[in-house]
Design a protein around this nucleic acid. Structure first.
Lengths: 123, 123
DNA sequence: CCATGTGTACTATCTGTGTTAGTACACATA
DNA sequence: TATGTGTACTAACACAGATAGTACACATGG
């Protein structure tokens, strides 16, 4: 279902968090669907169970999954998750905008890039 | 001239690199103008000279300053620096765009935010 | 009841990065 | 010659990420 990019400096547990958030927000994983167990996912990805545990704890903290002791982790049923993810992305966009402003780069440059990018993606 | 934000998780030397790149690109620092010495800037910011050295080495590596041994660091004279900074920012925007796509978030959301942001900034 | 699978909580260890501290040396200039 | 400059080291510390191993509590199906 997911994979790890070892050429990416992003910590493994963060990659797992991001990828599962995307799967959940896109609806690939249905609400209340069971997540892979900590041990099985660790086996599948060939990484340490503690790292999976850390990722799951973060997913739960952010409200994307809920945990039932002795049974496993399950996808949360929350229509607000997509909106949360959208706000997260807008926040990152804002960070880029601020950096552009501080460098004296015209935001029109970003706007043009984004528009071209949308045309290219929707072809 | 610059300051360090200790509430920011970004490493000190990276903050210094980013801030001086902005000052140079904006023309606040003129080409061939002398940069603060490693030791004096370390004193001014109350941080270790080695950290400044690391920042200056990075600035030189990226072509924003040049070094004359025994004399100091000086702002590079290169009209392409602004374009380099622009490409760097576009690259960060692209990263956000990819994350949006992976989460199934409509790029129109980003475009609308950016346009509103430009109107607000240009008031 | 019991074996198994589950989450959870520890401790210990290793690695890499960021930072500080201290020393030393070569070069440029007044 | 004294001072200011960049540069190159080594050592030490703190922290984050990751691994390894162990242990315990809970849920479920036989």
């Amino acid at each position: 279902m997911i994979w790890i990019d070892y050429t990416d400096a992003t910590p493994i547990y963060e990659q797992i968090v991001t990828k599962y958030k995307n799967l959940i927000v896109r609806g690939v994983l249905a609400p209340n669907e069971k997540m892979p167990s900590v041990r099985s996912l660790a086996m599948e990805l060939s990484i340490n169970p503690n790292t999976i545990q850390k990722a799951y704890a973060e997913l739960e903290r952010q409200g994307f999954v809920y945990t039932v002791k002795g049974r496993g982790n399950f996808v949360a049923d929350n229509s607000g998750l997509k909106e949360m993810k959208e706000k997260e992305i807008i926040q990152k966009l804002e960070t880029v905008v601020v950096e552009a402003e501080e460098a004296g780069v015209d935001l029109l440059l970003l706007s043009r890039y984004l528009n071209n990018r949308m045309d290219a993606g929707g072809k």
